[in-house]
Amino acid sequence: MTPQVADALAAGQPMAVVTPYTVQPALMDALQVVLLILVAAGATVVALTRVPVRQTVALSAYGLLLAVLFLAFQAPDVTLSELVVGAVALPILLLLALTRVRRREK
């Protein structure tokens, strides 16, 4: 334990650094609930889509939804990672792989 932490504990300060919302907490709750439902719906759509190319596009949209969800839960770093990997990088690789497989089949 570092001196700063020991001092903070001794002074009885709360350890958590809480960033308060700039909007009504109830509004934030509503936004989070809506996003959770959207993410669940999005995942279902991805799972139920049977055509691989369409599924890849759905997966990209789902990655975007998930990124927005992470943002609403105050995790901007994870948002960026999800955005670049889930919504961009993974769909690109999947599309390229699908193209390759399809060319071979012809």
Binding site: M1, T2, Q4, V5, A8, M15, A16, V17
Partner: peptide, 10 residues
């Protein structure tokens, strides 16, 4: 909590 508190200072 610990990291949040000390990271910027360190």
């Amino acid at each position: 909590f610990v990291v949040n508190r000390i990271a910027v200072g360190q």
